[in-house]
Amino acid sequence: MKKAFIDQNLCVACGCCLTACKLNAVSIPKGVCAMVDYSKCVGCGMCAKKCPASLITIKEESANE
């Protein structure tokens, strides 16, 4: 299944992805950078579209390992 992957080193914690995700899969703990809850994310890509820094890629979960 496809999931959202965030480049956390460059994330500015603006929260655009947070408001874009209808499933509440994104959080920004401690205001540092955005994180995806993979048990909730369905890989719809809404967050990736909204990220002003274009840091979110949607890809197969296994591709990250």
Binding site: V12, A13, C14, C16, K50, C51, P52, A53, S54
Partner: peptide, 14 residues
């Protein structure tokens, strides 16, 4: 660029 591009380099955000 994107609608909220300013937020990437906004001094308050940084």
């Amino acid at each position: 660029f994107k609608p909220r591009s300013w937020c990437v380099y906004c001094p308050m955000g940084t």
